[in-house]
């Protein structure tokens, strides 16, 4: 009798513990500078951060840009930043971070032309000049800014796959160039390269 009671109690408490245990959170914050549990051969957050940080430092240290008396006007967007690799990617993840970090670090030594917001700027200017809305606090300028330099670049990959094991290797070479929009000369360039390997589980080969 006592054995049976003990068994029943043990079963009930086991069930109760099972029911009462706190649920595990489905989402957790992870460090974007580190590889997470979900990986592959694709570009990941730590690659984008490391790459853009290096380009910012290198570009600001460039003597051609540093010697300029007036802050140059620069366009940094994805219009001429081409993906020639094998991974679809939102290129703005790279160009936007690069522009924002440059803007912060340059502290006025470089100014950035937001060419992709041209329509927005034009509409505002037209409405101001038509008297639909008032003038801003700053004095109006005669023209929308042109640019001295523009960022171009390429994402390129070299892929290798072992057809027997499914092991995949991908070498990335991501190039960045700052092109003088008057002369066509490249005044600064750099590249970022890395290689990744991963192996799909046997279930998915």
């Amino acid at each position: 009798m006592s054995l049976k009671r003990t068994l029943i109690l043990a079963t009930c408490s086991a069930l109760a513990v099972g029911c009462a245990s706190a649920p595990k959170p489905n989402a957790t914050y992870v460090n974007p500078d580190e590889a997470g549990k979900v990986t592959g051969v694709g570009i990941e957050s730590q690659d984008i951060r490391a790459m853009t940080d290096r380009m910012v430092r290198d570009m600001l240290a460039n003597p051609v840009i540093a010697r300029l008396q007036n802050p140059p006007y620069v366009i940094i967007d994805d219009a001429y930043f081409v993906n020639e690799g094998s991974q679809p990617i939102n290129k703005r993840l790279i160009t936007e971070r690069l522009m924002i970090e440059l803007n912060r670090a340059a502290a006025g030594r470089m100014l950035f032309v937001e060419r992709q917001a041209e329509d927005m700027v034009r509409e505002e200017r037209e409405r101001k000049r038509a008297g639909e809305i008032g003038a801003g606090a700053n004095a109006p300028v005669r023209q929308v800014a042109g640019a001295d330099y523009r960022l171009t670049g390429r994402i390129m990959t070299l892929d290798q796959i072992d057809p027997k094991t499914g092991r995949q290797g991908r070498y990335y070479q991501i190039t960045f160039k700052l092109v003088d929009l008057e002369s066509g000369l490249t005044v600064w360039s750099n590249l970022y390269e890395f290689k990744k390997e991963a192996e799909a589980g046997v279930l998915y080969r």
Binding site: V82, N83, E84, G85, S86, Q87, P88, I89, K91, D159
Partner: peptide, 8 residues
């Protein structure tokens, strides 16, 4: 370019 990458 992303279309090309996706096809690849």
């Amino acid at each position: 370019d992303n279309a090309r990458a996706a096809f690849e």
